[in-house]
Each structure stands twice: as structure tokens, then as C-alpha cells.
């Protein structure tokens, strides 16, 4: 009983303190400080070189109604450039893929917010190098069954459209990609590595008739010792 009373007392005190602060802020017409308006955790999230800037509202912003302004530049440039698509956006992200196309180059992004007539300071990302930070999706796997053998076709994730040279470049231009194919014999429920290498077409031969098999694949980047998540399973029944 004593415990509950103490807790209640504490709660009441907290409520009163919060309320009186709110009243104080309201009566004095004080805006939240720039520091607490400032967008938080501004960072790039990159998948297959699609580079999205993401952030969270400042600590004092629990309500909606704030707009955000995004700028970017390559490291070493003096001028920040406005991202017009995200100039006054209410979203908490901004696609900067086309502004960060040089995969080996370091970039910065930054975000500022305006709320109730007040502007925050800029919040900047850490230095961002797409080549190093992007996460690769699993390969797309297609299987073609030929009697007792299986042809596995692998495709690396597509790069964002690059129009500066008009060329269709592939992921392999930037990493030495290795494909790994795993096969599970459904009756044994045992997974084995069926292939590891750079070929995009893999033939798995002499499978047991009247057996079921499932195939999954992943991409490995030897230079960075990183692997992609696994692909969707492709299952087949050998006649």
C-alpha cells in the first residue's frame, strides 16, 4: 500500500511538472529551442545503390505539421545543393539515388526543419560512400528442369538507371560477385552447397528421380566479406 501511494505521489509530481512547463511555454510564447527541433538520426540507407536519406523528427516534435528541407553534396565541394523534390517535404525520407550516382565517391546529405515559423539548424549525415555501404539484395533465381538435371539461372540485383553514359552496367562492374547456390533434398531435409562461383548459369546434374528439391541462392562479395540475404526458394519435383 505504501509503495502504491509513493508511486502515485511521484506520478502526480511528474504530471504537474510537465503541465506547468507546458503552461510556462505557452504563456511566454517560447518556441522549442533549435536544438530540439533539429532532425535526428539523419542517414543514408542504401540498397542496390538506391540511396535514400532518412531521418527522424527533432525531440520536441511530437506533432505533425513540420516540413523538411534537404540538401546534398559530394565531399570536398563547397556548395550544398538543394534537393528540389524534397524542399518542404513532410516525409521523413528523400530519394537521393540520382544525386549520388558515383559509387566510389563520398557524399553528404543534410536536413533542416521548419515548424510553427521556426527553423532548425541543419542535421548532417555521416560521410556516405555508396560502394562501401550499400546492401545487396539476394539474386533472382530461375530454375529450368531438364529431365534429371536442373538449370539454375542467377541474376544480380539491378543497378539504378544511370543516364550519364547511357550504358547498362551491371553489379559485377563494381564488385567481384560470387554466387552461392544451395540445394535441399526434401526427403533428407539436408542442405548442401551446390555451387560457388562467378557463373550466372549453373547446372545441377544427376538428381534422383521422383524426389523433390529446393534451391536457394545468395550473393557473396569477397572483397568486403559480405553476403546478401538468401533468395526465395525455388522447389522442383524430378519426374
Amino acid at each position: 500500500m505504501q509503495k502504491i501511494h509513493e508511486t502515485l505521489l511521484l506520478l502526480t509530481t511528474v504530471v504537474i511538472t510537465v503541465m506547468s512547463n507546458a503552461v510556462l511555454l505557452a504563456t511566454l510564447g517560447i518556441q522549442p529551442t533549435h536544438g530540439s527541433l533539429k532532425p535526428q538520426k539523419v542517414q543514408f540507407q542504401s540498397r542496390n545503390f538506391h540511396n535514400i536519406l532518412r531521418w527522424q523528427p527533432g525531440s520536441s516534435l511530437t506533432t505533425n505539421g513540420s516540413v523538411y528541407f534537404v540538401q546534398y553534396k559530394m565531399y570536398g565541394q563547397r556548395e550544398w545543393k538543394n534537393k528540389t523534390d524534397c524542399w518542404g517535404t513532410t516525409a521523413l525520407f528523400c530519394d537521393l539515388t540520382n544525386e549520388t550516382l558515383e559509387l566510389y565517391e563520398p557524399y553528404y546529405g543534410r536536413v533542416m526543419t521548419a515548424w510553427a515559423g521556426s527553423y532548425s539548424a541543419w542535421s548532417r549525415t555521416p560521410r556516405f560512400t555508396p560502394w562501401w555501404e550499400t546492401k545487396l539484395d539476394p539474386p533472382v533465381v530461375t530454375t529450368v528442369q531438364v529431365n534429371a538435371s536442373l538449370l539454375v539461372l542467377l541474376r544480380a540485383p539491378e543497378l539504378p538507371y544511370r543516364n550519364q553514359n547511357g550504358k547498362n552496367t551491371s553489379m559485377e562492374n563494381y564488385y567481384d560477385l560470387v554466387y552461392r547456390v544451395f540445394i535441399t533434398d526434401n526427403s533428407l531435409q539436408k542442405e548442401q552447397k551446390a555451387y560457388e562461383g562467378t557463373q550466372k548459369t549453373v547446372q545441377i546434374e544427376s538428381l534422383t528421380p521422383r524426389s523433390g528439391y529446393c534451391i536457394v541462392a545468395e550473393i557473396y562479395q569477397p572483397m568486403l566479406d559480405k553476403k546478401s540475404p538468401r533468395s526465395e526458394q525455388r522447389c522442383v519435383q524430378i519426374p
Partner: peptide, 18 residues
Amino acid sequence: TFRLAEEASLADNNTDVR
């Protein structure tokens, strides 16, 4: 090498000079 660069770049607030 990349991690070392990353760590140090966090301490480098001069984004204009490369």
C-alpha cells in the same frame, strides 16, 4: 581500412576540403 576511415571521418567536420 574502410572502418578506420569511417571512424576518422566522423571526427572531420570540414566537409568542404578534400
